[in-house]
Nucleic acid binder design. Structure first.
Length: 306
DNA sequence: AATACGGGCAACCGCCTGTTG
DNA sequence: TCAACAGGCGGTTGCCCGTAT
């Protein structure tokens, strides 16, 4: 199911593996371990380069490879981790037992990327598509709103996600307008624009990203199993029961995830001015549920100083 | 029925990093 | 300190197959 077999300049075979080659490789590794990959082909009697053997083993023949479709939970983990890590497929794969980096990479490129685009999210930045200054429209907002009002299967989370994204999208564009030079005076009455750049909100499909595109979330220390126990109740408080439950469902406490909301208790304090204005812009559900303030600058913001 | 087209994915390529002497 | 080597990683390629025309 791939390129036709051929020989490279060293006479080593390239292209698809035959069942017989697979059997030889598996037999050898089961008996001796892989050891030096470069030496393995000769020792095992395979006319392949070591690299090809390693890839075949790690991506296909390893006994702990999980086959089949990705679950919703796996999807969410991939999206979350990609928002934090970018195309670090091997690290993402380390959080999904039985999945290979290659498999996740392919899944991302063929499925998730399109899915995010359809939802109006840039798959690179994980941010809603920005305000279109040429047409003076909120690109994709209409689409998101139509998604949020369309009939949905009750088992699907997309409905909620689309609603939340539409709200987030609207808010982001409002913020952009407020932060424009012509609106600076107005926005300064609401809050310091420097502070805006550090606002993050909890991505409805499992990640956090900033309202302004200048920064990507830095890699956080992975969550420990205990962190999951504390993260899930937080999520529940945020009215995101599905996601909270999904954390609880990780019964075997899988590999850790980055901290999606980089906020210590004091850091997560939402400034009153912003909170009040959010309330005017957003409804109750989203105004207080999906936003947190991350303090990562010095000096601390005025509202954190009594 | 034949052909064109596009999606999915296994495998390869080339670069980067860590290790060793 | 440096070079050589091995392994790992992300990006890309190209074939197979299902679907549309």
């Amino acid at each position: 199911m791939s390129r036709a077999s051929m020989l490279d300049e060293n006479g080593l075979k390239k292209g698809p593996w035959t069942p017989e080659e697979d059997r030889i490789l598996v037999d050898y590794i089961e008996k001796h371990g892989h050891g030096s990959w470069r030496a393995l082909p000769n020792l095992a009697g395979l006319n392949r380069c070591g690299k090809s053997c390693r890839l075949r083993w790690t991506n296909y023949l390893r006994p702990d490879i999980k086959r089949g479709n990705f679950s919703d939970q796996e999807e969410q983990i991939i999206i979350s981790l990609h928002a934090s890590l970018g195309n670090k497929w091997s690290i993402i794969a380390s959080h999904l037992p039985g999945r290979t980096d290659n498999e996740i990479k392919n899944f991302w490129n063929t499925h998730l990327k399109k899915k995010l685009l359809q939802m109006g999210i840039d798959p690179v930045t994980h941010m809603p598509t920005p305000f279109d200054h040429h047409t003076n429209t909120f690109s994709n907002l209409h689409h998101l709103l139509s998604l949020s009002t369309a009939p949905w299967d009750s088992s699907s989370r997309l409905h909620t996600q689309a609603t939340q994204l539409a709200k987030a999208h609207l808010l982001q564009n409002v913020l952009q307008i407020l932060s424009s030079p012509s609106s600076l005076a107005i926005s300064n009455n609401l809050f310091n624009t420097q502070q805006i750049t550090n606002l993050t909100y909890n991505h409805p499909i499992g990640s956090s990203f900033q309202t302004f595109p200048s920064n990507i979330q830095p890699l956080q220390e992975p969550l420990s199993c205990d962190d999951y126990a504390t993260t899930a109740p937080t999520l529940a408080l945020e009215n995101d029961c599905n996601r909270a439950e999904s954390f609880y469902d990780m019964s075997q406490c899988p590999n850790s995830l980055p901290d999606l909301i980089p906020a210590s208790p004091e850091c997560s304090k939402i400034p009153t001015a912003i909170e009040n204005n959010w309330g005017d812009i957003m409804d109750d559900e989203s105004s207080s549920s999906y936003w947190k303030y991350a303090i990562n600058q010095t000096p601390p913001p005025p509202w954190s100083v009594s």
